[in-house]
C-alpha cells in the first residue's frame, strides 16, 4: 500500500521536474525568449553600440552564447535566465549608444551655435 503510494508520488515528482524544464522538449516560452534575445543582440550589433557601448554589447553576446549552450545541453532554466540577461544587456547597449550619439550631436550643434554667435558679434563690433 505504502509502496504503491510512493510510486505514484515518485511519478508525480518526475512529472513536475519535467514540467519545470529539466528534461524533454524545450519549453515554448524559453524558445521565444531566446529568439527575442537573438533579435535584440542583432539589432544592437547593427546600431552604433559596437562603437559607443562595446562592453555592454560584448556582455550581451556572451550571455546569448551561454543561453544557446544551455539550450543544447537541455538546461532550459539556465537558457531562459541567460536569454533574459542577454536581452536587457543588448537593449542597454543600444539605448546607451543612442544617448551617446545624441549627446555628441548636441555638443557639436552647441559649438556651431557658439561659433556663429562669436562670428556675428565680431562682425557687429567691426561694423561699429
Amino acid at each position: 500500500m505504502t509502496g504503491k503510494k510512493a510510486v505514484i508520488q515518485f511519478l508525480l515528482l518526475c512529472g513536475m521536474v519535467g514540467l519545470s524544464g529539466c528534461a524533454g522538449k524545450p519549453p515554448t516560452a524559453t524558445l521565444s525568449q531566446l529568439s527575442q534575445a537573438e533579435l535584440a543582440v542583432k539589432q544592437a550589433d547593427k546600431s552604433k553600440a559596437p562603437e559607443y557601448a562595446s562592453l555592454e554589447l560584448y556582455t550581451a553576446r556572451e550571455q546569448l552564447t551561454s543561453a544557446q549552450q544551455a539550450m543544447n545541453r537541455k538546461d532550459y532554466a539556465e537558457a531562459r535566465r541567460m536569454a533574459e540577461r542577454a536581452l536587457v544587456n543588448a537593449q542597454l547597449a543600444e539605448t546607451m549608444a543612442e544617448a551617446a550619439q545624441t549627446r555628441q550631436a548636441a555638443t557639436a550643434l552647441q559649438q556651431s551655435v557658439e561659433a556663429l554667435r562669436r562670428e556675428a558679434d565680431q562682425r557687429a563690433s567691426r561694423s561699429r
Binding site: L92, T95, M96, A99, T102, R103, A105, A106, L109
Partner: peptide
Amino acid sequence: AAAEKKTAENEL
C-alpha cells in the same frame, strides 16, 4: 540611458 538620450534630444 533613455533619460540621457531624451535630455540630449531636448537640447538638440
